[in-house]
Design a protein around this nucleic acid. Structure first.
Lengths: 202, 202
DNA sequence: ACAATTCTATACCAATCGGTATTGAATAAT
DNA sequence: ATTATTCAATACCGATTGGTATAGAATTGT
């Protein structure tokens, strides 16, 4: 009932996502948004509630589209998982058709106190991402897929750090090749269980 | 001649640095600055010219105080250098008396187009930092301190990425211990020259 | 046809943004 | 003591910030 919406909210969120991705939460104004989305302010507020709410929707879409993290979970071994993660990050952030960097990092890494709720939300999401990695590595250890002295929490933090570093490097204009070679280096000495094949030691 | 300045410009820059460090360039308003520095706007503009010029002075001070990068250059081997870099980053950004994260990253990682000159300046400085690492590693290779198949550019990028990752992790509230253990893991991948002692292989 | 409903568009809101004109006070050189 | 100079304080500038009140247009259900 009532007058139907004249724009596609999903496409609007997708456009907002790219804008926030490129300029960050604080660096994106309502004027930027309404111009890019092709709608007026009252339409934006009627559809999404607030700039902050729209950002959160854009963030959800971003995480859904950065699907390499979930896809990597299907890897058979801890090492294959780590490799899928880092190569996935290098691929995504080396794709020049995307804005450079990572929305989950540069959306609001340092900001004014009035945007602190966004900053904290991003920290929370990064922590969740790291905990998913940690859980996968814990399982790998149970599977005998990681040596007894390997710490899943330390390894998950290390992988997270390399991924974040890749995104910062990408924000600086690094090419996909450059990111890929760094991902390769980061995996050179991945700990291997004693009963596993291969001669790479921990 | 004339009336002497009633505030210490060096201390003002140091205070501004911490403010920019915590809130980023765009997230720090002139009101924030004048309140924190205890001076009025005309005094700030007379002394520094503009918000942007003050930021650049603060950035210079930041780089001077993040002395671990220069100190690391004194290390005797490539590996000791890499270790000094990563442990230095973990130490600095694990110091809770500092604002979390790195000014050179979160000062302006993603921002509005009107602050793009700051963003680009930070990218330039990060590139310079990486090139210094690369030059040191090139020398190491000449010294036979790195294996023949090691690429100084790749290794420098890898180290930079881990350092950036550490700063993002620090911005999320990581402890010094956590950053240190990640630095340790990152060093496990370090290549060793064929003629060097130790049994850690590349 | 007529409500009821929900959209869009114009115009506006107080607050804040970075930056400055103006005035008076404090200093150094003469 | 006077003058030139440089500072600090108040008050202000136009532009922009995120957000909204109001009015009219478009739709559905009756």
């Amino acid at each position: 009932m009532g007058r139907p919406r004249e724009f596609d909210t999903e496409e609007a969120i997708a456009r907002a996502m790219r804008l926030f991705w490129r300029q960050g939460y604080e660096g994106t104004s309502l004027t930027d948004l309404t111009e890019e989305l092709g709608i007026t302010r009252p339409s934006l507020y009627a559809a999404f509630g607030s700039k902050e709410a729209l950002f959160l929707k854009a963030l959800d879409l971003y995480e859904a589209r950065a699907g390499y993290r979930e896809a990597a979970l299907a890897a058979p071994t801890a090492r294959a998982y780590a490799q899928a993660l880092l190569e996935g990050a290098a691929d995504l952030h080396g794709d020049k058709s995307n804005p450079p960097g990572c929305l989950g990092v540069q959306g609001a890494l340092a900001c004014a106190p009035e945007s602190d709720s966004i900053r904290k939300e991003l920290i929370l999401r990064r922590r969740i991402g790291e905990s998913i990695i940690r859980d996968r590595l814990k399982r790998a250890k149970v599977d005998g897929d990681l040596p007894a002295d390997a710490d899943p929490a330390d390894l998950a933090r290390y992988l997270s750090i390399v991924i974040y570093g890749i995104t910062v490097q990408a924000a600086g204009g690094a090419t996909r090749k450059e990111l890929q070679s760094a991902a390769k280096l980061a995996l050179k000495n991945w700990p291997q269980a004693a009963n596993a094949k291969g001669r790479r030691g921990a």
